[in-house]
Amino acid sequence: MEHTAEHTSEHHGEHAGGGTKEIVKVTIILSVLTVIELILGFWMIDIPLEQASFRLAIKGTIVILMMAKAFYIVAYFMHLKHELKNLIMTIVVPLALFIWFITAFLYDGNSFRNLRNTYDPHFKEQSTIKVEKKEHGAAKHEEKKEATPAATPEAPKAAH
């Protein structure tokens, strides 16, 4: 109990320095990063699929912005930056495993796709057959269109 009391009073002084100003600053940074991400997202809508490397570059930028956002949330909102270095290390070092996980698994996924495209003709073929686009709204319209001409010849008959 003594520890906790000591701890809070110690931290108190630290927080008073950054305080509300720091919170406002980080909020603005997070909002700006999100807006940039969204601008990039909107921009990518109009870029055709053929420009694959350009799209990939934008996606990479978005991922970097995402990491920046994660850093600001963890460092300032979760106050990890103000903790002792030992504590920071016990949290961050294990998470470094993700670097290997992501590299290895994405590489594996990509290699699996290439293997199947090479040796599985059915898999390759599936990715070239275009399916007729059936829009949710459009499908309903067609139904109505079909329904109305069928109904109109009937109607005069009934009137007779």
Partner: peptide
Amino acid sequence: GAFLISYGTIRFSTN
């Protein structure tokens, strides 16, 4: 992380 990496792997192995 495991969920998202699994999602990424499947996405990378699909055309």
